[in-house]
């Protein structure tokens, strides 16, 4: 579904990504682990084409959507407008269909009652669900999530794990999740790539390890 070959990226002569190569198959959840500044977010941004890479190639069969760390909801639009604005622009004849679809996704994610609220009136967790819903309504094949649990406590992190897992199963969306939280990643991913200093330090299936967190920590 996504193949990446020898991607390199530098910012002002500082190498951020060096010879990154991997491919992912449909419907899996890939975790991108690594300490802050190791290039996780840059890699996601390159896949989404928010950044260009200096070298390498990328083949992608499908639509990619990005969920930002700080959600980036449009603050002057209601939750429903946040979801339907882009699809309505693409197909103006299907506004009613988009509205129904948006309401159904919101309901699925447990925030059906928030459709007419503005983002400022929502909690962090609710904003995250809206951001997720806004990505899902575009029918993405691959969903990129940048640090979805940053700043969350343990119980909310567990909520995010079950939320993303259910979205993965329900919508069949392939996910690439960047996070520095190894505990979170080992719970949610079926494959983890750990980046260190811009290169792949280890590529592992956490389900095959007895203690995946400690195993990955060795490479930190």
């Amino acid at each position: 579904m996504l193949k990446i070959y020898n991607i390199c990226k530098s910012f002002n002569d500082v190498k951020v990504l060096e010879d990154i190569s991997f491919d992912i198959k449909k419907s899996g959840i890939l975790g991108l682990a690594g300490p802050s500044g190791c290039g996780k977010s840059t890699l996601l941004r390159c896949i989404q084409k928010l950044e260009s890479f200096d070298k390498g190639t990328m083949e992608c069969n499908g639509r990619v959507c990005f969920m930002f760390q700080d959600f980036q909801l449009f603050p002057h639009m209601t939750v429903l407008q946040n979801l339907t604005y882009a699809p309505d622009l693409k197909d103006r004849d299907k506004k009613e269909e988009h509205k129904n679809q948006a309401e159904s996704i919101l309901k699925n994610l447990g925030i059906g009652s928030k459709a007419e609220k503005y983002p400022v009136a929502l909690s962090g967790g609710q904003k995250q669900r809206v951001a997720l819903a806004r990505s899902l309504i575009t029918n993405p094949d691959i969903l990129l999530c940048d640090e979805p649990t940053s700043g969350l406590d343990v119980s909310t992190t567990m909520d995010v794990v079950s939320l993303l897992k259910s979205v993965n199963e329900q919508f069949g969306v392939t996910m690439i999740i960047a996070s520095h939280d190894l505990d979170f990643l080992t719970k949610i991913s079926d494959r983890i790539i750990l980046l260190k200093n811009g290169t792949i330090a280890v590529d592992v299936d956490p389900r095959q390890c007895d203690d995946p967190v400690n195993y990955l920590k060795k490479y930190y």
Binding site: L50, C65, F66, F68, Q72, L73, A86, K90, T138
Partner: peptide
Amino acid sequence: LPKGQFEAAKTLEIPRFYMWKDIILPQ
């Protein structure tokens, strides 16, 4: 304005004219 607002519009494939008219300039 946060750079992410431009990027969010881009990831949602909102055309530039509408991005400016409906997302950026109202804010």
